[in-house]
Write a protein that binds this DNA or RNA. Structure first.
Length: 574
RNA sequence: GGGCCGGUAGCUCAGUCCGGCAGAGCGUCUGGCUUUUAACCAGACGGUCGCGUGUUCGAAUCGCGCCCGGCCCGCCA
């Protein structure tokens, strides 16, 4: 067997179950051409396909679905893949009558290797490193996240702080996950048996791992000890004593990217609970300890960790690794997520702009496709969701494919299927954000036909809540829906003679006191009387009040504002 | 250098596993609603399905080669 192995070549026929290393499971599980039990293919929802793969193995109940990240910093919406991809599969299995646990490991025994530039408090506010005690963090490089004080002082440790944020992200999306702290699992001995087994069979472990990694020599010992003197994790294990379940170690320097984290040189003894396994072994130990049946992971793991992990599971241990599923990474506004470059977005920030069901819908889409989460055009995502919803309720026509898709996917996106809901079109909601007057918002929405006469109060309230979201979006992106009534300053507007006369006539009309509808009519009349093209005259009006080319229905809107201001502005006095 | 994933209309995306007229929404343009202003309605515009090649009666779809973007093949996770 060559190294690295050409395990991708068995893709077309690779069986899911195997008892030898020549039939490894391809992690690109989606659309892989395997026949289902009765030869049916053509899934409209990828989670159905994954659920089939899991059911074929007849797993014990409860079925365990896992995800996990290390709580090293701000958990952003890229990390939500780990939560939501597993969630949809869990829900499909629950629908089929299975009991399912969705667990999420906080890989918090990992060591802090560098200082993140951005952190986030528990409310999800991003703060710069400089705003917390950076020095205290710097002195803790090399220690496990759970052995480092919380820079915000609100949780027991750095690791707990960011695990808490991950949990809150899941809560916000309505996903019930059980977070398992790696640190706690080590302390409670959950990994002790596996650790002991790896150390006992370290030649075998080395033999398997060396197929995937260079630079692991004969003396390789798969354990990192936590130094009793300085708290750093060290991989310098000098001897293993399985009779007492301990190792001897020396606290040595660690390379972390560009820099070196210095060890203290202490030589000591650690139990198997006072340290950790290297990642590739740890992952397998998690599968074993938790009985994991399914695990989605990013494409970064697909070519490295996964092939070695499943090999270790089968050939060092003797158990079947979980059904894998690779998901493509997505970009944020066309760029990779990067906390150091500030290109991150928290779930809580996204939910300031869109409803949770829309974000859930984003993650219901095909995981194998690379895509962009585009904040500028988030209205398109919302429109797409609204259309899915309308297709589901049979309110718009669509082809069979779309109908099947909506029928299957929509119920998993919403907390509760409710036909009586009302959705204001997102960009229309953004326009309503021009006024803070909630009664006026509702009145305009009703007049434009977006709220039916007999709509119940709760539905109206929920519909109007989108206005706040859409306004946040308009403001954040400073786009054309960022309506802001220019009350304090007169926008710079060029006005020719005809337009000037038309504006004066309109001002006089308003001064006489008329209904909003009459004012709207007068805008047309004033323009026509003075040979000003109607479109141009409206544009001038929007310019004067909003410094924009477009806006809400002008007459009705001006009729609602205080007359004194409207008159002064039409006469361009202030 | 080797491997893997992605590349479909100006934008956001379906369709690719299973070959059968290249699609949706948004956008743009034109017209209509005897007041174009988030409008709405009707119609139109918009594509070398990354490029090439092979197989086929027929290729976005299958094979091979190439281009571009990203990831892995060191450490770490």
């Amino acid at each position: 067997m060559s190294s690295p192995r050409a395990w991708g070549t068995n893709r077309p026929t690779g069986p899911r179950m195997s008892d030898n290393a020549d039939t490894d499971a391809d992690p690109y599980t989606l659309h892989d051409g395997d026949e289902g039990e009765n030869g049916e293919r053509g899934f409209v929802f990828w989670a159905d396909e994954m659920a089939d793969e899991i059911e074929v193995r007849a797993p014990e109940e409860p079925i365990v679905i896992k995800g996990g990240i290390s709580p090293s910093g701000v958990p952003h919406i890229g990390n939500v893949n780990e939560i939501m991809r597993g969630y949809f599969v869990a829900e499909v299995l629950r629908e089929r009558g299975h009991e399912v646990r969705q667990v999420f490991t906080a890989d918090d025994k990992d060591r802090l290797r560098g200082l993140p530039r951005k952190l986030a408090d528990l409310e999800g506010n991003i703060v710069d490193l400089g705003e917390v005690d950076a020095g205290a963090l710097g002195r803790n490089l090399g220690k496990p996240y759970t052995a480092i004080p919380d820079p915000f002082g609100c949780c027991d440790s750095y690791g707990d702080h960011f695990s808490m944020l991950i949990g809150r992200s899941a809560d916000l999306l309505g996903v019930p996950i059980e977070i398992e702290s790696n640190t706690a699992m080590y302390e409670e001995g959950e990994f002790e048996e596996s650790t002991r087994y790896f150390l006992e069979n370290r030649e075998r472990a080395h033999e398997v791992l060396s197929k995937y990694q260079d630079g692991v020599d004969e003396s390789y010992i798969p354990f990192l000890a936590e130094c009793e003197n300085c708290g750093h994790l060290t991989d310098q294990i000098t001897s293993v004593n399985l009779d007492s379940n301990t190792v001897e170690y020396e606290c040595v320097d660690v390379e972390a990217g560009e820099q070196v984290i210095e060890g203290c040189g202490h030589e000591g003894t650690a139990t198997l609970r006072e340290g950790k396994l290297p990642w590739r072994f740890e992952w397998v130990a998690q599968w074993k300890a938790l009985g994991v049946d399914f695990e989605p992971f990013g494409k970064d793991h697909a070519e490295g960790s996964w092939p070695s992990g499943q090999d270790i599971a089968r050939n060092v241990f003797d158990f079947e690794p979980p059904v894998p599923m690779v998901y493509e990474w997505f970009t944020l506004d066309g760029e990779a997520f990067s906390s150091s470059a500030g290109n991150v977005m928290l779930v809580s920030e996204v939910l300031d702009l869109i409803e949770p069901e829309v974000l859930r819908y984003f993650f219901a889409k095909d995981p194998s496709r690379a895509r962009d989460f585009n904040v500028e055009r988030i209205d398109l995502l919302v429109d797409e969701f609204d259309r899915l919803e309308r297709i589901y309720f049979g309110e718009v026509e669509a082809d069979d494919r779309e109908e099947q898709r909506a029928e299957r996917i929509y119920p998993f996106c919403v907390e509760e299927v409710c036909e009586a809901r009302i959705r204001l079109p997102y960009t229309f909601a953004a326009v309503l954000g021009m006024t803070d007057d909630s009664d006026l918002r509702e009145e305009i929405a009703r007049r434009e036909g977006h709220i039916p006469e007999e709509a119940p109060d709760w539905a109206v309230e929920e519909a109007l809540s989108r206005v706040e979201s859409a306004r946040n979006w308009a403001r954040e992106t400073e786009n054309e829906y960022d309506y802001d009534l220019k009350r304090t300053e007169l926008p710079d507007v060029e006005v020719d003679g005809n337009t000037k006369r038309a504006l004066e006539e309109l001002a006089d009309f308003v001064e006489e006191g008329h209904t909003p509808e009459e004012i709207q009519g007068e805008i047309y009349e004033a323009a026509k009387r003075n040979d000003v093209p109607v479109g141009d005259f409206f544009a001038t009006g929007y310019r004067l009040f909003f410094d924009q080319e477009q806006g809400p229905k002008l007459g009705q809107f001006l009729g609602k504002l205080d007359r004194e201001f409207v008159l002064a502005r039409l006469r361009r006095e202030r």
